[in-house]
């Protein structure tokens, strides 16, 4: 009678073949929560600080819980960022190249997955090269050309590379589509070919509908990466279209234009709470997008069929 109950207890605590046991599960949760807290600490810090009023900021007793839900920082940051206009610009600058990029990269990925032609290995090597070559090695001549064409500062400077398969991180999207099309069965396409369908008809009627998850994943990731990209946007768009991250990097200057340091009282001086409110407003659209589409993000690797190989 004693042995079985001891075994049950041991199984309960240390686990057996059927479950991990309470001790293991508890330490797993504890560990993950602790790591998760450290991991999200910058965000929590930003969120808490952004709600602090001047009194709370100066009060060393107030660390994690502001004494009131102070929204003044957000009102200022909203004005300094010129939020609605810059939000629209950011949406435009990130969405349109992403749509074009997904369309072109899917054509390239399909061509690589379905057709045999000489020089394919070389093409793959060059695609990989476009991923490795740092932007600063190719960006200056492009900038000078755009300047001559009068395209500097316009959306075209982002759309043109994307429409020729050279958008931001295009290599990743080509590989996503290559993998996707390679794992799709060929049977339907071969049957259509025997019926006399042209290559493009087969692509649009058969391959494309089967690859919808890859399109969704590509467009989502491309949008996020374009949104957060600031190296190219600063070089190509400065002086023209202004995105939210670009405006955030000029926050101090923009703030002092709106609230000149000499004329405002101490409570309206720029402080870290206002800056962090601006930072939070900057990432808010992406956070909302992430929580709505989170399944597409965290299951992207499985859905798009990318693996380590």
């Amino acid at each position: 009678m004693r042995r079985p109950s001891l075994d049950t207890l041991r199984g309960f605590l240390f686990g057996n073949r059927a479950s991990y046991g309470v001790l293991f599960t508890a330490s797993l949760y504890l560990l993950l929560i602790a790591i998760g807290f450290v991991y999200l600490y910058p965000l929590l810090f930003m969120l808490v600080t952004s709600f602090k009023s001047m009194d709370d900021l100066l009060n060393p007793m107030v660390q994690w819980v502001p004494t009131q839900l102070y929204l003044g920082n957000y009102l200022k940051a909203y004005r300094v960022l010129d939020y609605p206009a810059k939000l629209a610009a950011s949406a435009l600058v990130s969405l349109t190249p992403s749509l074009i990029q997904a369309a072109v990269c899917s054509l390239v990925g399909y061509g690589l997955a379905r057709y045999r032609f000489p020089g394919k290995t070389l093409v793959f090597a060059l695609i990989l090269a476009t991923f490795i070559i740092p932007a600063q090695n190719t960006v200056i001549p492009q900038m000078l050309t755009y300047k001559q064409l009068g395209l500097l500062g316009s959306l075209w400077s982002m759309l043109l590379p994307a429409s020729l398969g050279q958008g931001y991180k295009s290599a990743i999207f080509i590989l996503i589509f290559f993998q996707t099309f390679q794992t799709l069965p060929k049977v339907l396409e071969e049957a259509a070919r025997l019926d006399g369908a042209s290559d493009l008809t087969i692509f649009f009627r058969i391959a494309l509908p089967a690859a919808v998850p890859a399109y969704v994943v590509s467009i989502i990731f491309s949008t996020v990466w374009y949104w957060n990209e600031t190296y190219l946007t600063v070089i190509f768009l400065e002086g023209g279209v202004q995105t939210l991250p670009m405006q955030l990097s000029k926050f101090v200057q923009a703030y002092e234009n709106l609230y000149p340091p000499g004329t405002v009282n101490i409570f309206d001086r720029l402080n870290e709470a206002v800056k962090l409110s601006g930072t939070f407003l900057n990432i808010l659209p992406l956070l909302l997008m992430y929580f709505v589409l989170q399944k597409w993000f965290v299951e992207s690797v499985e859905r798009a069929g990318i693996t380590g190989e």
Partner: peptide, 16 residues
């Protein structure tokens, strides 16, 4: 096959 990657080839020459 070249037809499908044509856009990319032009882009690679022009933008890389």
């Amino acid at each position: 096959g070249y037809g499908f990657i044509l856009l990319w080839l032009i882009g690679f020459a022009l933008f890389t």
